[in-house]
Design a protein around this nucleic acid. Structure first.
Lengths: 252, 252
DNA sequence: CGCGAACTTGACTGTAGTCAACCTGCGTGG
DNA sequence: CCACGCAGGTTGACTACAGTCAAGTTCGCG
């Protein structure tokens, strides 16, 4: 079913272009990065915590969760990665310390060697900046998750995450009111720091506004959901659009 | 009292050198960045949320908290920045979306224009990588805060933060058992997602292991504190030490 | 058809929040 | 030099949101 997908980084380049300006040559250089395709089964950890990896993982299809855990094994997802994301681009410059990766559902990734990415960044300053910027978007999302878990009640946490995914699942970061989100309530609990029981109850309390059934989200009332989740897309979208970041160097 | 400090970025360069290799020329180039000194009073917000700043803030003295907040004004600190840190280096490539900055106590910062930083990064690939890496350390800490708030009880949250600051307050990232941490219990609550009342009680429960009195931390039993806070310094220190990241380009 | 994973529901518990009163120490001004 | 004011810290009584435990139910898949 998944064999129709082009096993290359096209979607990643497209994502970068939302926030950064890259010349044709630079785009081609990224697309020419060596990749190695890997299929993963659901619930499979494929980058372990404290493991020092030598490649970054581009998500081609499926859903990936980044996570950390406490010493007694409690897991906390810190980020969901949809197709088009590189789940651990940061590991290129810092191969440890930002958690493990888990395939939430059956997932296909492309492995890209760190060495190749670093070489590219060193050769093309605009690419280095684009990668750096992409990592900072990631950090902005992470920060929202901290606010979510620290400062909102169960219903609002779920609403916020569902809003975030509604923006990030869309092709050009526009809001989509219906999207695939193949998580179990248990996994959602690990993302929101709630138990699966409480996720279940809180989701029920939201069912006039949105429903999550067998990995599929339907949002019936976006405004209300955004209000409940106190969702303001500025942190995701604030730097998108035309030519925000002028180039500092000529395309080489 | 503070006039003895050299108002330059020396401490920042020193921090970078812990994890990145920079030639003399590159180090000098960073030190030559234009700076503008600013004094702040305690509890003063100096970068507002959603404000698009045009400079990054180097912390020369004092303590800075990065924060986000919910629409009803609940504040969540997402990071503390000690002298030597650039509190918002990330804003160089993404000027919005990663929160506001607040001077926890009376603080001195140096403002460094984004434009100058970007120009430097474009000219020296090794500097770009060092800046990128520095931001990723920042993200690693942020991720630990999410785990902290999501998965640990009050006492463990406080213990973990006190351990983190014990490492980050030291000159060369070694653990110091006594350090300045001029926060109120209210502010600590905003960092750990607890109320000041509960911070007070939980701190009391820790007082055989550590004490925090008038902005000064004393750790009496490091091993016990680290055990309570489930603190493993790997995420802070895992990439330090000799020549971990080989240079990819010759020093120019 | 049968098994297991995921979901659902109910009853009870517990950690942290809320509210409110009071204490303490420090800086300012009379 | 003392008195006042106020920010920050401390304590107690009560509340509530979410966790725990346990018993079903539903659904998808082999």
């Amino acid at each position: 079913m998944r064999h129709a997908l082009k096993a290359n980084l096209e979607l990643f380049v497209k994502r970068l272009l939302v926030r950064s300006i890259l010349s044709d040559e630079e785009q081609q250089a990224i697309l020419a990065l060596p990749v190695h395709i890997v299929e993963l089964r659901k619930k499979q950890d494929f980058v372990h915590i404290d493991e020092e990896s030598t490649y970054a993982c581009f998500v081609l299809a499926g859903l990936v969760g980044r996570f950390g855990q406490t010493s007694n094994g409690l897991r906390q997802f810190t980020r969901f990665h949809v197709p088009g994301d590189v789940a651990d681009l940061h590991s290129t410059v810092r191969p440890i310390g930002i958690g493990g990766l888990n395939a939430i559902c059956d997932t296909t990734i492309l492995r890209v060697p760190h060495f190749a990415i670093r070489t590219l960044a060193a050769r093309y300053p605009a690419i280095a900046e684009a990668f750096w910027r992409d990592c900072m978007l990631d950090t902005a999302v992470l920060m929202q998750w901290l606010i979510n878990v620290g400062r909102r009640d169960a219903r609002a946490r779920l609403a916020h995450i569902l809003c975030e995914m509604a923006v990030r699942s869309g092709q050009d970061q526009q809001i989509v009111l219906e999207y695939a989100f193949p998580v179990t309530q248990e996994q959602l609990g690990d993302a929101t720091a709630l138990t699966s029981v409480h996720v279940n109850r809180s989701l029920k309390a939201l069912d006039s506004v949105t429903t999550l059934k067998s990995g599929h989200v339907q949002i019936h009332d976006w405004d209300k959901l955004a209000r409940i989740g106190e969702f303001n897309p500025a942190y995701l979208l604030g730097d998108t659009g035309a030519q925000r970041q002028r180039r500092l160097v000529e395309a080489s």
